[in-house]
């Protein structure tokens, strides 16, 4: 049996709302440690991997590891029907592994709403990626910035063109674009520390200068999720997709992997 409860408007609900513009169906794995979700966008440019540790929920129970495909848009639609103050329970029982049950309970416990959502096949939404601690060392540059700044950069650039070039070296981190009507270049002089301050742009890992071209549509989606958190961490490598990460509590995370564009 798997069962988690959360208050309406909790961070999981906010994240599910924010990933809707990229993701239809997601693969969810539950273990005693927490709730993880993986999904690919329909064009296979963005892979989303998130992990919510059990302690971020109001209550959490998972007797046996389970894996299921969930139609995220349908789930979000159901969750939107909850009222302020409701406690939301998501439950899968061992006897019935064809659907999940979502329950809303009003704060005064006088009203309960039960809904069943059919599970779907989401096996094609899995990708084999290395353990993160191995992978992080493969990035040529990793920096952190306030997520509001990241969103502002993406919005400012998308006025001019569909693409952004992100360049990182020891001295500067820049976001630039060039279109028919002009060009924009936003440069940040980074701090260099392992312990980034919340309000600044910090270069935490640097093995050499690197630049990548990315479609701003995907970057704006990543930025939308990141604004649920204070800081965003961005990793660049010429051999890996761009990584955009937000931390959830101590052990949790949301990671986007975005395939860059390449000049032929």
């Amino acid at each position: 049996m798997f069962e988690l409860t959360m208050a309406k408007g909790s961070i999981l609900q906010g994240v599910l709302e924010a990933i809707l513009d990229l993701v239809n169906v997601a693969n969810v794995d539950c273990s005693s440690k927490g709730f993880s979700l993986q999904a690919l966008d329909t064009e296979h440019v963005v892979f989303l991997s998130l992990f919510f540790p059990s302690e971020v929920f109001r209550s959490y129970r998972c007797d046996e590891d389970c894996s299921m495909g969930i139609a995220i848009a349908d789930m979000v639609d159901l969750l939107r029907a909850s009222n302020d103050g409701d406690i939301i329970t998501i439950k899968v029982t061992d006897q019935n592994f064809e659907d999940i049950t979502i329950t809303f309970e009003s704060p005064d416990k006088t009203k309960t709403t039960d809904m069943d959502l059919q599970l779907v096949d989401a096996r094609s939404h899995r990708l084999k990626i290395s353990e993160w601690h191995d992978m992080e060392s493969e990035y040529q540059a990793i920096f952190c910035m306030p997520s509001a700044q990241f969103m502002l950069n993406c919005k400012s650039l998308s006025v001019i063109d569909d693409d952004v070039v992100i360049r990182v070296n020891e001295e500067v981190i820049s976001f630039s674009t060039k279109g028919k009507s002009g060009c924009v270049n936003i440069s940040h002089v980074p701090n260099k520390t392992d312990n980034p301050e919340k309000a600044s742009v910090t270069l935490t890992h640097m093995r050499g200068p690197v630049s990548l071209t990315l479609n701003l549509r995907y970057m704006k989606s990543c930025a939308k999720v990141s604004t649920l958190f204070d800081q965003v961490k961005i990793g660049l490598s010429t051999k890996l997709p761009l990584m955009v990460e937000c931390k959830i509590a101590e052990k949790g995370y949301i990671r986007y992997f975005v395939a860059p564009k390449i000049t032929e």
Partner: peptide
């Protein structure tokens, strides 16, 4: 014009 790559270039299916 730069061409969009897809993730299968970097990761294999599980």
């Amino acid at each position: 014009q730069p061409k969009q790559q897809v993730l299968s270039r970097f990761f294999s299916p599980k």
